[in-house]
């Protein structure tokens, strides 16, 4: 079962929920936590395990070979991402802009743009007593998160059986990386805060998830600040509110120490139980 934890707004508590929920669920079921926020993975601050496996990750990009090139400019014409520029006497490839579609390479009549791998980041797989934890991190200067996210999901699919619970800590926002991280999820938990900012971005996230056909529920974090507009919105849109996590200084203190909250906070643990019941009793 794949559960993605996403949000429109950044800083609402995705990682707090993902790390705590994964650890909590792993006490009773086989669980893997996957940090797909590859531009800034930080689940690892809260999950300390032993390194089990690591590997570099690559994307395919064209490399110009000038020997047979007739400078026809077709490569530039077929590139939808402006990753190739044909100049009077040579061809330049901007690999950071390349989406690995192979069009330039396949359609080159002189085979002057063979594809070759370029390193974009690394994947690490850790194990704790009960939990598997996989995280990927993009190299500095790399702009595209999507290929690394999809390769990380593929690794998880290959390593773990279908019945294993997979918690995907997703990037914030509603752009391509979020879509890659949440697509094909069995359920998406949207974490928000009860403020106008939280609501505005929640609406964007809900619309995005609907477009993808994902089932969604909402967790309200820092409950007690702001107003009731998020609750009214969820009611109107018939979106279930799975849990409400109080705006509690003690939670912030545990977080700041890199600790899992539910182990020291019974109210937080109760909210996780509610989410777990919702996800698994409903399924059964």
């Amino acid at each position: 079962m794949k559960i993605a934890i996403a949000s429109g707004k950044g800083g609402t508590g995705k990682t707090t929920l993902a790390t705590n929920l994964a650890s909590f669920l792993s006490e009773s079921r086989e669980t893997v936590l996957v940090d797909l926020d590859v531009e800034e993975p930080n689940s690892g601050l809260f999950i300390k395990g032993e390194l089990f496996f690591q590997t570099d990750k690559f994307k395919m990009v064209p490399k110009w070979e000038k020997e047979n090139c007739i400078l026809c400019g077709n490569c530039q014409k077929v590139c939808n991402f402006n990753a190739i520029i044909k100049l009077p006497d040579h061809v330049m490839v901007f690999s950071k802009l390349c989406h690995s579609c192979y069009a330039c390479s396949e359609l080159c009549s002189t085979k002057s743009l063979p594809m070759q791998p370029e390193k974009i980041g690394a994947l690490k797989h850790y194990k704790t007593n009960s939990l598997n934890f996989v995280e990927s991190k993009l190299d500095v200067g790399q702009e595209q998160a999507v290929p690394l996210i999809s390769q990380t999901k593929k690794y998880v699919d290959e390593q773990f059986q279908k019945k294993v619970i997979k918690i995907f800590d997703s990037p914030p926002g509603t752009s391509c990386p979020v879509i890659e991280a949440t697509k094909n999820a069995d359920f998406v938990i949207l974490v928000t805060e009860p403020t106008p900012f939280g609501l505005y971005d929640l609406k964007l996230a809900v619309e995005t998830m609907r477009e993808l056909g994902n089932k969604t529920g909402v967790v309200i974090n820092r409950y007690g600040i702001g107003n009731d507009d998020v609750i009214d919105y969820c009611r109107k849109e018939k979106i279930d509110i799975l849990a409400r996590i109080s705006n509690d200084r003690k939670i912030a203190e545990l977080y700041s120490q890199g600790k899992l909250i539910y182990k020291d906070n019974s109210e937080f643990r109760f909210q996780l139980e509610k989410i777990s019941d919702y996800l698994f009793l409903r399924e059964a």
């Binding site: 991402f81 402006n82 990753a83 520029i85 100049l87 009077p88 802009l97």
Partner: peptide
């Protein structure tokens, strides 16, 4: 209308 890679495009035009 160009989302990414505006710089190289403009440079090429200038050439």
């Amino acid at each position: 209308d160009v989302a990414h890679g505006a710089g190289p495009q403009t440079a090429q035009k200038m050439f």
